[in-house]
């Protein structure tokens, strides 16, 4: 922050750190930051500032979130695929040991929670756990390191922690939700409808009440899943940014800020692992509920 500190207030600094690098379609007639007006029919462009992002609405994509998210997903696939290719019944070593430890941990969790037979659940849980963990791990990289480096290279905004983007967390939560609906219908068939309409009051008169309550309960699951991860990571990132802002307040704040930074980072190691684990466990639990016929 120090490099561009003088011309920037703390709140500008924070807002800048919380803005995604966005590519989207500006509506026709919109006046851009430099005074130019977007032609009729709209125009796809890199957003400059929060106002433009708002103007883009749904027709926009967070380039940074997608890049880091897909990049980390590819890293996960590459790493685990390499181990999978070399996996033998012989003596494991190094990376193989580590990967097998993770796989065994996930497998144990799935076996404890999910009692049906579904070859999808364990790989799904593994992907979620490792991927979310990697995305959360980006939080431990000093907040200014990559954004500032990229800024010097001409990239205006950069949010490197994908799980602080609700689109990312909700995207996965929606994926899990679709799976929940799919397996509910596949396993229970008409029983799923009964579950929605005749619970908790088993009487035809109460069907509207039941339906309302059950649908709200059902919809709450993906929201709680996605927003819990987003909220935790967003708050964690925010505190990192605030601590980073503290460095610029004055020389006396350097040491306390450094200590806070270290303390929060150590605490955050726990948080990111825990959040990844919670996301995985909730996914397993929800899918387990979808498989259980009452």
């Amino acid at each position: 922050m120090a490099a561009n500190g003088d011309s920037q207030t703390v709140s500008e600094y924070i807002v800048h750190h919380l803005t995604n690098l966005t590519y989207g379609k500006l509506p026709g007639g919109y006046e851009r930051y430099d005074g130019s007006v977007v032609a009729e029919g709209g125009q796809w462009a890199m957003a400059h500032g929060a106002d433009e992002i708002t103007a883009m609405g749904f027709n926009a994509i967070h380039v940074d979130s997608m890049f880091w998210s897909v990049g980390l997903g590819v890293l996960f696939c590459w790493l685990f695929r390499r181990v999978a290719v070399n996996a033998t019944a012989g003596i494991p070593s190094g990376l193989v040991n580590f990967v097998e430890m993770v796989v065994e941990f996930v497998d144990g969790t799935v076996k404890d929670t999910f009692h049906g037979r579904n070859p999808l659940i364990a790989p799904l849980a593994l992907t979620i756990f490792v991927w979310v963990f990697l995305m959360n791990l980006m939080d431990l990289i000093p907040v200014d390191l990559i954004p500032h480096t990229l800024m010097l290279a001409g990239v205006e905004y950069q949010k490197i922690v994908p799980s602080t983007d609700p689109n990312i967390t909700m995207g996965m939560a929606v994926g899990v939700f679709v799976l929940m609906l799919f397996y509910s219908i596949k396993v229970k068939g008409f029983g799923f409808v009964k579950e929605l309409t005749l619970n908790p009051f088993n009487h035809p008169l109460f069907i509207p009440v039941n339906l309302f309550m059950e649908v709200v309960g059902l919809l709450a699951k993906p929201f709680s899943l996605g927003l819990r991860l987003f909220g935790n990571m967003y708050a964690g990132e925010m505190i990192f940014i605030l601590i980073a802002a503290l460095f610029s307040v004055g020389v006396f704040w350097l040491l306390p800020a450094a200590l806070l930074q270290i303390g929060w980072a150590i605490f955050h190691i726990l948080v990111i692992t825990l959040q990844a684990f919670i996301f995985m466990v909730l996914t397993i639990v929800y899918l387990s509920m979808a498989h259980e016929d009452h």
């Binding site: 995604n20 966005t22 994509i61 967070h62 997608m66 998210s69 997903g73 992907t127 689109n167």
Partner: peptide, 15 residues
């Protein structure tokens, strides 16, 4: 925004 859809596709692909 569309990031959600993108992430959903990536999610399905990785799983």
């Amino acid at each position: 925004n569309l990031t959600l859809i993108g992430q959903l596709i990536a999610f399905v692909a990785f799983v």
